[in-house]
Design a protein around this nucleic acid. Sequence first.
DNA 1: AAGAACCCCAACCGCTGAGAG
DNA 2: CCTCTCAGCGGTTGGGGTTCT
Length: 285
Amino acid sequence: MSSLRKNSTNSSEDEAEKLRRGPWTLEEDSLLIRYVDRHGEGRWNLLAKRAGLRRTGKSCRLRWLNYLKPDVKRGNLTPQEQFLILELHSKWGNRWSKIAQHLPGRTDNEIKNYWRTRVQQQARHLKVDANSAAFRNVIRCYWMPSLLQKMGTQVQNETSQRQALTMPEQNSDSEQCGNSYVSWSESMNNISKVSEFAEYQTTPFSVFGNNGCNTLASKDCYSYDNTTSFCDVETLNLAATSALAEGFPDPIGNCHLADNDWVSDGFADHGLWSMGELWELKSFQ
DNA sequence: AAGAACCCCAACCGCTGAGAG
DNA sequence: CCTCTCAGCGGTTGGGGTTCT
Protein backbone atom coordinates (compact mmCIF):
# COMPACT_ATOMS: atom_id res chain seq x y z
CA MET A 1 0.00 0.00 0.00
CA SER A 2 2.77 2.37 0.86
CA SER A 3 4.28 1.77 -2.54
CA LEU A 4 1.04 2.87 -4.09
CA ARG A 5 1.49 6.23 -2.52
CA LYS A 6 5.08 6.30 -3.69
CA ASN A 7 3.89 5.50 -7.20
CA SER A 8 1.54 8.40 -7.20
CA THR A 9 4.43 10.79 -6.98
CA ASN A 10 6.06 9.42 -10.12
CA SER A 11 5.77 11.10 -13.48
CA SER A 12 2.71 10.18 -15.49
CA GLU A 13 4.81 8.44 -18.11
CA ASP A 14 6.44 6.19 -15.58
CA GLU A 15 3.06 5.55 -14.09
CA ALA A 16 1.66 4.49 -17.42
CA GLU A 17 4.29 1.78 -17.60
CA LYS A 18 3.80 0.63 -14.07
CA LEU A 19 1.16 -1.60 -12.68
CA ARG A 20 -1.43 0.05 -10.55
CA ARG A 21 -1.81 -0.88 -6.91
CA GLY A 22 -4.06 0.05 -4.05
CA PRO A 23 -7.79 0.64 -4.03
CA TRP A 24 -9.71 -0.19 -7.15
CA THR A 25 -11.61 2.48 -9.04
CA LEU A 26 -15.14 2.08 -10.36
CA GLU A 27 -13.77 2.08 -13.86
CA GLU A 28 -11.40 -0.78 -13.09
CA ASP A 29 -14.16 -2.70 -11.43
CA SER A 30 -16.43 -2.38 -14.42
CA LEU A 31 -13.64 -3.39 -16.80
CA LEU A 32 -13.03 -6.49 -14.73
CA ILE A 33 -16.70 -7.35 -14.40
CA ARG A 34 -17.29 -6.89 -18.12
CA TYR A 35 -14.32 -9.05 -19.02
CA VAL A 36 -15.23 -11.87 -16.66
CA ASP A 37 -18.80 -11.65 -17.86
CA ARG A 38 -17.70 -12.28 -21.42
CA HIS A 39 -14.77 -14.62 -20.98
CA GLY A 40 -15.13 -16.15 -17.56
CA GLU A 41 -12.70 -16.38 -14.67
CA GLY A 42 -9.18 -17.74 -14.73
CA ARG A 43 -5.89 -16.99 -16.51
CA TRP A 44 -5.70 -13.86 -14.48
CA ASN A 45 -2.49 -12.44 -15.91
CA LEU A 46 -3.85 -12.73 -19.41
CA LEU A 47 -7.17 -11.35 -18.23
CA ALA A 48 -5.47 -8.32 -16.72
CA LYS A 49 -3.76 -7.51 -20.02
CA ARG A 50 -6.71 -8.19 -22.27
CA ALA A 51 -9.16 -6.33 -20.09
CA GLY A 52 -6.89 -3.32 -20.24
CA LEU A 53 -6.27 -3.32 -16.54
CA ARG A 54 -2.89 -2.12 -15.36
CA ARG A 55 -3.01 -4.60 -12.52
CA THR A 56 -1.33 -7.87 -11.77
CA GLY A 57 -3.35 -10.98 -12.41
CA LYS A 58 -3.11 -11.66 -8.76
CA SER A 59 -4.68 -8.36 -7.89
CA CYS A 60 -7.49 -8.94 -10.40
CA ARG A 61 -8.18 -12.38 -9.02
CA LEU A 62 -8.34 -11.08 -5.48
CA ARG A 63 -10.60 -8.21 -6.41
CA TRP A 64 -12.96 -10.50 -8.24
CA LEU A 65 -13.09 -13.25 -5.64
CA ASN A 66 -13.29 -11.05 -2.59
CA TYR A 67 -15.44 -8.24 -3.84
CA LEU A 68 -16.89 -8.30 -7.32
CA LYS A 69 -18.08 -11.86 -7.73
CA PRO A 70 -21.89 -11.77 -7.72
CA ASP A 71 -22.36 -14.35 -5.01
CA VAL A 72 -20.10 -12.63 -2.51
CA LYS A 73 -22.14 -11.84 0.57
CA ARG A 74 -21.61 -8.47 2.16
CA GLY A 75 -22.39 -7.34 5.65
CA ASN A 76 -22.10 -8.74 9.13
CA LEU A 77 -21.68 -12.41 9.75
CA THR A 78 -24.79 -14.01 11.15
CA PRO A 79 -24.63 -15.86 14.48
CA GLN A 80 -24.88 -19.09 12.47
CA GLU A 81 -21.88 -18.13 10.42
CA GLN A 82 -19.94 -17.03 13.47
CA PHE A 83 -20.73 -20.28 15.22
CA LEU A 84 -19.61 -22.23 12.21
CA ILE A 85 -16.35 -20.33 12.04
CA LEU A 86 -15.61 -21.06 15.69
CA GLU A 87 -16.56 -24.65 15.21
CA LEU A 88 -14.55 -25.19 12.04
CA HIS A 89 -11.56 -23.26 13.28
CA SER A 90 -11.42 -25.56 16.28
CA LYS A 91 -11.17 -28.43 13.84
CA TRP A 92 -8.92 -27.06 11.17
CA GLY A 93 -7.12 -24.07 12.61
CA ASN A 94 -6.22 -21.24 10.26
CA ARG A 95 -7.36 -23.05 7.14
CA TRP A 96 -9.36 -20.04 6.02
CA SER A 97 -10.18 -21.16 2.54
CA LYS A 98 -11.30 -24.54 3.78
CA ILE A 99 -13.51 -22.88 6.36
CA ALA A 100 -14.81 -20.47 3.74
CA GLN A 101 -15.95 -23.38 1.60
CA HIS A 102 -18.52 -24.12 4.30
CA LEU A 103 -19.85 -20.57 4.41
CA PRO A 104 -21.42 -19.88 1.05
CA GLY A 105 -20.79 -16.36 -0.14
CA ARG A 106 -18.11 -15.65 2.43
CA THR A 107 -14.48 -15.33 1.45
CA ASP A 108 -11.44 -16.65 3.21
CA ASN A 109 -10.32 -13.06 3.61
CA GLU A 110 -13.49 -12.11 5.40
CA ILE A 111 -13.29 -15.07 7.74
CA LYS A 112 -9.66 -14.39 8.43
CA ASN A 113 -10.50 -10.78 9.21
CA TYR A 114 -13.30 -11.87 11.51
CA TRP A 115 -10.97 -14.15 13.38
CA ARG A 116 -8.31 -11.53 13.75
CA THR A 117 -10.51 -8.61 14.64
CA ARG A 118 -13.12 -10.32 16.79
CA VAL A 119 -11.78 -13.54 18.15
CA GLN A 120 -8.14 -12.67 18.64
CA GLN A 121 -9.11 -9.28 19.95
CA GLN A 122 -11.28 -11.01 22.52
CA ALA A 123 -8.29 -13.08 23.55
CA ARG A 124 -6.18 -9.97 23.87
CA HIS A 125 -8.77 -8.36 26.10
CA LEU A 126 -8.73 -11.40 28.30
CA LYS A 127 -4.95 -11.38 28.23
CA VAL A 128 -4.72 -14.95 27.07
CA ASP A 129 -3.29 -16.55 24.02
CA ALA A 130 -5.93 -17.11 21.35
CA ASN A 131 -4.66 -20.65 20.92
CA SER A 132 -4.54 -21.46 24.61
CA ALA A 133 -6.75 -24.06 26.18
CA ALA A 134 -8.15 -21.41 28.50
CA PHE A 135 -9.33 -19.29 25.63
CA ARG A 136 -10.74 -22.25 23.80
CA ASN A 137 -12.77 -22.89 26.89
CA VAL A 138 -14.03 -19.35 26.90
CA ILE A 139 -15.14 -19.85 23.33
CA ARG A 140 -16.71 -23.14 24.11
CA CYS A 141 -18.33 -22.25 27.40
CA TYR A 142 -19.47 -18.72 26.65
CA TRP A 143 -19.15 -17.66 23.11
CA MET A 144 -20.58 -20.63 21.32
CA PRO A 145 -23.49 -21.07 23.71
CA SER A 146 -24.32 -17.41 23.40
CA LEU A 147 -24.30 -17.72 19.64
CA LEU A 148 -26.52 -20.74 19.94
CA GLN A 149 -28.86 -18.70 22.02
CA LYS A 150 -28.91 -15.95 19.45
CA MET A 151 -29.57 -18.47 16.75
CA GLY A 152 -32.33 -19.97 18.81
CA THR A 153 -34.00 -16.64 19.27
CA GLN A 154 -33.75 -15.90 15.58
CA VAL A 155 -34.91 -19.30 14.60
CA GLN A 156 -37.80 -19.31 17.02
CA ASN A 157 -38.99 -16.08 15.50
CA GLU A 158 -38.65 -17.61 12.08
CA THR A 159 -40.30 -20.85 12.90
CA SER A 160 -43.16 -19.45 14.86
CA GLN A 161 -44.52 -18.55 11.45
CA ARG A 162 -44.03 -21.99 10.07
CA GLN A 163 -46.32 -24.93 10.52
CA ALA A 164 -44.24 -27.83 9.37
CA LEU A 165 -42.17 -29.63 11.95
CA THR A 166 -39.52 -31.87 10.62
CA MET A 167 -36.63 -33.66 12.19
CA PRO A 168 -33.10 -32.72 11.14
CA GLU A 169 -32.10 -34.51 7.99
CA GLN A 170 -30.15 -37.66 8.55
CA ASN A 171 -26.73 -37.80 7.07
CA SER A 172 -24.38 -40.66 6.50
CA ASP A 173 -21.12 -38.84 7.24
CA SER A 174 -22.45 -37.07 10.27
CA GLU A 175 -21.50 -37.53 13.85
CA GLN A 176 -23.42 -39.82 16.07
CA CYS A 177 -25.37 -38.14 18.83
CA GLY A 178 -27.27 -40.60 20.86
CA ASN A 179 -30.05 -41.96 18.74
CA SER A 180 -29.96 -39.27 16.13
CA TYR A 181 -27.37 -38.39 13.55
CA VAL A 182 -26.82 -34.73 12.91
CA SER A 183 -24.27 -33.06 10.70
CA TRP A 184 -24.11 -29.61 12.13
CA SER A 185 -22.05 -28.17 9.36
CA GLU A 186 -24.46 -29.48 6.81
CA SER A 187 -27.29 -27.99 8.73
CA MET A 188 -25.58 -24.67 9.02
CA ASN A 189 -25.39 -24.41 5.29
CA ASN A 190 -29.10 -24.29 5.22
CA ILE A 191 -30.95 -21.91 7.45
CA SER A 192 -34.15 -23.83 7.13
CA LYS A 193 -32.45 -26.88 8.50
CA VAL A 194 -31.24 -24.81 11.42
CA SER A 195 -34.80 -23.78 11.98
CA GLU A 196 -35.84 -27.36 12.06
CA PHE A 197 -33.07 -28.14 14.43
CA ALA A 198 -34.07 -25.39 16.77
CA GLU A 199 -37.67 -26.30 16.57
CA TYR A 200 -36.77 -29.79 17.45
CA GLN A 201 -34.66 -28.57 20.30
CA THR A 202 -37.29 -26.11 21.52
CA THR A 203 -34.50 -24.06 23.04
CA PRO A 204 -30.92 -24.28 21.90
CA PHE A 205 -29.71 -24.13 25.43
CA SER A 206 -31.23 -27.41 26.20
CA VAL A 207 -28.16 -28.73 24.48
CA PHE A 208 -26.32 -28.02 27.66
CA GLY A 209 -28.92 -29.37 29.98
CA ASN A 210 -28.58 -29.00 33.68
CA ASN A 211 -25.03 -30.12 33.78
CA GLY A 212 -23.89 -28.34 30.66
CA CYS A 213 -20.75 -26.35 30.46
CA ASN A 214 -22.49 -23.03 30.47
CA THR A 215 -24.60 -23.92 33.44
CA LEU A 216 -21.54 -25.04 35.18
CA ALA A 217 -19.67 -21.88 34.38
CA SER A 218 -22.62 -19.80 35.34
CA LYS A 219 -22.48 -21.30 38.77
CA ASP A 220 -19.28 -19.39 39.32
CA CYS A 221 -19.67 -16.47 37.01
CA TYR A 222 -23.20 -15.44 36.29
CA SER A 223 -26.51 -17.03 35.84
CA TYR A 224 -28.17 -17.58 32.56
CA ASP A 225 -31.21 -15.52 32.08
CA ASN A 226 -33.48 -16.35 29.21
CA THR A 227 -34.50 -12.76 28.79
CA THR A 228 -31.01 -11.39 28.50
CA SER A 229 -28.60 -12.08 25.73
CA PHE A 230 -25.06 -12.30 26.96
CA CYS A 231 -23.74 -12.46 23.48
CA ASP A 232 -22.55 -8.92 23.48
CA VAL A 233 -18.85 -8.57 23.79
CA GLU A 234 -18.95 -6.75 27.10
CA THR A 235 -20.91 -9.37 28.89
CA LEU A 236 -18.89 -12.06 27.30
CA ASN A 237 -15.82 -10.27 28.48
CA LEU A 238 -17.07 -9.99 32.03
CA ALA A 239 -18.08 -13.57 32.18
CA ALA A 240 -14.95 -14.84 30.60
CA THR A 241 -12.70 -12.62 32.65
CA SER A 242 -14.23 -13.84 35.84
CA ALA A 243 -13.99 -17.37 34.58
CA LEU A 244 -10.32 -16.86 33.88
CA ALA A 245 -9.86 -15.22 37.24
CA GLU A 246 -11.46 -18.20 38.89
CA GLY A 247 -8.63 -20.31 37.68
CA PHE A 248 -8.79 -21.08 34.02
CA PRO A 249 -5.12 -21.95 34.13
CA ASP A 250 -6.57 -25.32 34.81
CA PRO A 251 -9.56 -25.12 32.55
CA ILE A 252 -10.38 -28.69 33.12
CA GLY A 253 -10.77 -28.13 36.81
CA ASN A 254 -12.74 -25.01 36.28
CA CYS A 255 -15.31 -26.80 34.27
CA HIS A 256 -15.74 -29.63 36.67
CA LEU A 257 -19.16 -30.61 37.83
CA ALA A 258 -20.33 -31.31 41.29
CA ASP A 259 -22.35 -34.33 40.33
CA ASN A 260 -20.81 -35.47 37.15
CA ASP A 261 -17.30 -35.34 35.83
CA TRP A 262 -17.83 -35.91 32.15
CA VAL A 263 -16.92 -32.35 31.35
CA SER A 264 -13.50 -32.90 32.83
CA ASP A 265 -13.05 -35.86 30.58
CA GLY A 266 -14.21 -33.84 27.66
CA PHE A 267 -11.79 -31.05 28.38
CA ALA A 268 -8.98 -33.43 28.90
CA ASP A 269 -9.46 -35.19 25.64
CA HIS A 270 -10.59 -32.56 23.18
CA GLY A 271 -10.13 -29.12 21.89
CA LEU A 272 -13.34 -27.22 21.26
CA TRP A 273 -16.27 -29.54 21.24
CA SER A 274 -17.88 -30.14 17.97
CA MET A 275 -21.57 -29.65 17.57
CA GLY A 276 -21.88 -33.38 17.39
CA GLU A 277 -20.30 -33.62 20.78
CA LEU A 278 -22.70 -31.07 22.16
CA TRP A 279 -25.51 -33.21 20.91
CA GLU A 280 -23.88 -36.14 22.54
CA LEU A 281 -23.87 -34.25 25.81
CA LYS A 282 -27.54 -33.66 25.44
CA SER A 283 -28.30 -37.27 24.90
CA PHE A 284 -26.04 -38.12 27.79
CA GLN A 285 -28.37 -36.54 30.29
C1' DA B 1 -14.44 20.75 18.41
C1' DA B 2 -10.28 18.37 17.86
C1' DG B 3 -6.88 15.10 18.38
C1' DA B 4 -5.90 10.33 19.86
C1' DA B 5 -6.93 5.71 19.97
C1' DC B 6 -9.17 2.02 18.21
C1' DC B 7 -11.38 -0.93 14.79
C1' DC B 8 -12.51 -2.85 10.32
C1' DC B 9 -11.38 -4.69 6.11
C1' DA B 10 -9.48 -4.26 1.29
C1' DA B 11 -5.41 -5.16 -0.69
C1' DC B 12 -0.76 -6.47 -0.69
C1' DC B 13 3.20 -9.78 0.05
C1' DG B 14 5.66 -14.03 0.23
C1' DC B 15 5.35 -18.71 -0.08
C1' DT B 16 3.85 -23.22 -1.92
C1' DG B 17 2.07 -26.62 -5.05
C1' DA B 18 0.45 -27.97 -9.55
C1' DG B 19 1.01 -28.26 -14.27
C1' DA B 20 3.10 -27.31 -18.72
C1' DG B 21 7.06 -27.26 -21.64
C1' DC C 1 14.26 -34.10 -13.78
C1' DC C 2 14.41 -28.93 -14.10
C1' DT C 3 12.52 -24.47 -14.82
C1' DC C 4 8.94 -21.37 -15.35
C1' DT C 5 4.31 -19.65 -14.81
C1' DC C 6 0.12 -19.40 -12.58
C1' DA C 7 -3.34 -20.04 -8.99
C1' DG C 8 -4.23 -20.20 -4.43
C1' DC C 9 -3.31 -19.73 0.50
C1' DG C 10 -2.24 -17.52 4.90
C1' DG C 11 -0.05 -13.56 7.09
C1' DT C 12 0.39 -8.67 7.29
C1' DT C 13 -0.30 -3.80 6.43
C1' DG C 14 -2.28 0.62 6.50
C1' DG C 15 -6.17 3.83 5.03
C1' DG C 16 -10.29 5.42 6.48
C1' DG C 17 -14.12 5.40 9.48
C1' DT C 18 -15.73 5.47 14.26
C1' DT C 19 -15.42 6.10 19.09
C1' DC C 20 -13.25 7.99 23.00
C1' DT C 21 -11.12 11.61 25.76
